[in-house]
Design a protein around this nucleic acid. Structure first.
Lengths: 186, 186
DNA sequence: AACTTGAGTATACGCATGTTTACTAGCCGC
DNA sequence: GCGGCTAGTAAACATGCGTATACTCAAGTT
């Protein structure tokens, strides 16, 4: 009814850029790269489509910018190594029921088949997850052990997405703890 | 040079249908649902594009037909239950390096986000993998234990696809055996 | 107040997709 | 031998995508 509901937004390049970035972060995290269109992002950011191209060059460039802005999981890989399996188990148990809060992990959980996205996601998974974990491990085969533990985390998320969420029980957490101990055992 | 290299193929509805189905099986398995176009399938089957629609209704219908024709993994879930962790470990170890031979598993490994495909893939994963495994397990929490073991298998494949293949070592197989024992422990 | 800059806009381009339509021609029963 | 069923074909359709273009107009400076 009101012909001018939306008041005019002040012109602010940086703020608009940030709105686009934030909208992309949310949508990519919720739906994955391929499923999200530039038009969807622009609509969510209440910005014009062309601005996506203007500020980020391309959809892939926008995705890369989203990845770059994401925090790492430092807290997961700090603390005493003996507690690591339990922490990973609690984290993975959450993944049985809910997607990660972090959009980047949500996106990495999914398969992104566009070549540019693949390499960016791969790079991110290695530097932000695999390498920190590997650095925590002592003993032989640190690389293989880290890889296996992260595989389990990925697998839990894959199962949730494919079959459906499941509320983790205390027994699940115990089992997962044993699983990660088996993964990480030197 | 030769203007008529390809000799005329006899007109055979069933054979053509089967060629399309086989081409779809291979391509879907290799590249996943979204990445494969009906034109690619038709070209691989040396059939006309329109026949895909004619014989299977739609791309999703073709995919469903592929799923239906796939064999189950009966051999993986038979035999003595005590040997199950080792068998699963050997299977998962193969998955570290190579995609599954079975196109259906290759497809299920990937995320298929088209709604029709999702439900078909989910159904298949439950009836052909989760339920048979669950039926093999005695003791409490059979459902959760089966789910966790399959999650690990999925995760191994997800890691290979994301980061790259890795040749499994004997130590990896041992570790995986311990992991599946932890998953399946009643 | 006039000018310049650039943020924001509307629109269309080129392309690839799944799907459908009208048509052609080979095979089988009579 | 021929007529009708139908497998197979060629071409287009409608749509949605990422991207690019030409333009408008608000704001800061002189």
């Amino acid at each position: 009814m009101n012909p001018q509901v939306t008041e005019a937004r002040p012109r602010d390049r940086e703020a608009t850029r940030e709105r686009i970035l934030q909208a992309a972060r949310t949508l990519f995290g919720e739906q994955g790269y391929e499923q999200v269109t530039v038009r969807m992002i622009a609509a969510a950011a209440e910005a014009n489509i062309a601005l996506v191209g203007r500020y980020f060059g391309s959809k892939a460039g926008l995705f890369a910018a989203v990845l770059q802005g994401e925090p790492t999981f430092g807290d997961l890989f700090t603390g005493r190594p003996e507690e690591l399996p339990r922490r990973l188990a609690e984290y993975a148990a959450q993944r049985m029921q809910h997607p990660p809060e972090s959009p980047i992990l949500r996106t990495l959980e999914r398969s992104a088949y566009h070549p540019e996205v693949r390499v960016a996601a791969r790079e991110r998974l290695i530097t932000a997850v695999l390498s920190p974990l590997e650095a925590m491990l002592s003993g032989p085969d640190a690389h293989a052990r880290a890889r296996m533990a992260v595989s389990v985390v990925l697998g839990i998320g894959a199962m949730r997405r494919r079959v459906g969420p499941e509320e983790p029980t205390p027994a699940d957490v115990d089992r997962l703890t044993a699983v990660f101990e088996a993964c990480l055992a030197g």
